[in-house]
Structures are given as C-alpha cells and as structure tokens.
Design a protein around this nucleic acid. Sequence first.
DNA 1: AGAGCGTATACCCATATGGGGATACGTCAA
DNA 2: TTGACGTATCCCCATATGGGTATACGCTCT
Lengths: 134, 134
Amino acid sequence: MARAATTTDAFNAVAEPRRRQILDLLTHGELAVNDIVERMGVAQPLVSKHLKVLREVGLVDVRDDGRRRLYRLNPVPLKPIHEWVRGFEQLWSERFDRMDVVLTELMDAEPMEAERDGRDDGGDAAQRDRDAAG
Amino acid sequence: MARAATTTDAFNAVAEPRRRQILDLLTHGELAVNDIVERMGVAQPLVSKHLKVLREVGLVDVRDDGRRRLYRLNPVPLKPIHEWVRGFEQLWSERFDRMDVVLTELMDAEPMEAERDGRDDGGDAAQRDRDAAG
DNA sequence: AGAGCGTATACCCATATGGGGATACGTCAA
DNA sequence: TTGACGTATCCCCATATGGGTATACGCTCT
C-alpha cells in the first residue's frame, strides 16, 4: 500500500494548502472555477482537480449556472477536525497544569492569549487522564 | 513535483490516521515506542517513522529513558489547525442563513462559551465578509 | 449549425508516501 | 564482554499524489 487516499476524509483534503486556500476563498461566497483560478493564479485543471477532491469529501457543493459551475463552501465536514483538535486545545493551555518549567517558557515565548477561562467542553481524549502522565 | 512533504506542517502530519492515533495515545501521558506499538498493533518501525514525522513537525517531544525513548505530546503545533478550522465553525452553524435559526441552535446546542471574551486571534478568512456570500 | 467560452478529464511525469523486512545502534543486564 | 532488549534506519515496493499539457464535454450566443 501507499498512502491512504486523500479523498477519503476532510483531514486529508485539508492537508493540502491549495485546498485550504480554496475553502478560504469560498468563505466569501459562491465562486465559479475561473474566479478561483484567477484568485489563486494556478492552472485551471489543477483547480478543478482540487475542487473534485473537496467535492468528494463534501467540503464544497456545486451548482450549475449556465456554462459555469458555482462552488459553494460546506464547512460541515470540518466539524470532526474541529472536534478532534479541540480535544487538545486545553492541553496547550493547561500544559501548565502540572508543569512548572513550562510556565517560564510560556512567559517569554507567548505572553498573549489562549489560556484563562476554564472551559472543559468536550475534550474526549485530552484531559481524560492526563494524571496518568506524571 | 509530487505532493508537498508530509513532514512540512501539522496539517499534513495530522492527516494520517495513525499519527492522530498516536497523538491521542500520548494524551494520556508519556509513552515509550513499544507502548505505542502495542496499543496500536502495528509494526515498530512504522511507529518509529510516524513518530519521526510528528517529531519533525514538533507535535511530540522525546526524552531518553535508558534504552527507551519516551515520547510526549506537544499540542502547540495544532494551534494553527484549530485556528483555521475555527474560522469555519460559525459557518457550519450559520449555514442556514446567517443569524435567525442559528441563534436558537446555539442557545440549546452549546450554551457554553467558546467565543465570548473577544479573542480574535486568527480568524483570518472565515467571518471576514461572509455577507458577500448571499 | 458554428464559434467560443468554462470546466472536467485523460494522460504523463516526478516524487513522497505508508508499509514491510532486515538490520544497525545504543543501553542495560549478566 | 556478551547477550538481550528497545528503537531508529536502511532498502524496497506499490501507490496516490500534485502538477502540466492537451483535449473532450456542455452550454450559450449568434
């Protein structure tokens, strides 16, 4: 075997930068292939291929408009990704939790946001038993 | 060219199911390669390879423990992913239109937080002008 | 019908991938 | 030191990929 088909799930579909870019573009609303081609500056066939992948994963919907095809974003398949990553969100905040050194590190590394507010939404894996760690 | 190197960014690293699985496992705390091998039931070299990728992307840290190597999760590189996907979060709720139905849904779907506290870190594309959509 | 535009496909290539098997390397146990 | 264990690497393969170019398909307009 080689690698799993990219067209399999959103995770793979989104792993490709150009595909992400397309999704970003579609965020602004429906776009015809050519619009995307222009905005991305890549060959049309390329765009069509990427769109195909996105279509197969369900990240975009198509609509015929005369001789054009309007693509529309369908963010729903991103949900699993969001959910999965969300499980780790607390970790990169809580990393402090039982850390000590880390605190220092963070202090001068990124003093910005992303920590306070003890949200414990649905972190499946994440905090389940991070105590088993130490 | 072929595809971009998987080792390039977290997006790619995480596109591989096994790699995600490893990260999930590491959620419970440090693990030696063999632990992972057992829990996943795949060949050891395979695991080592995946770990290498994860290492290169910074998703795991290694620590030497005698003849074992303990791997530890480092969720930080997931942040960009989280942030990117988060930009779409609203969309898959707003999809119905933009605020009407959604409001209701939000009400009883996630009464929690997750948006208040005006962190607007990386919501690049997403809501920028979803009004251009209609 | 014919011309032209917009898009999808087909085909070809180079390459990185995930996986397998064997093995080298480093560390601990005798 | 020798042997066993734990892990990383090496080499090999099949395959899917992203990209390029050419072309086929579909629709619109004249």
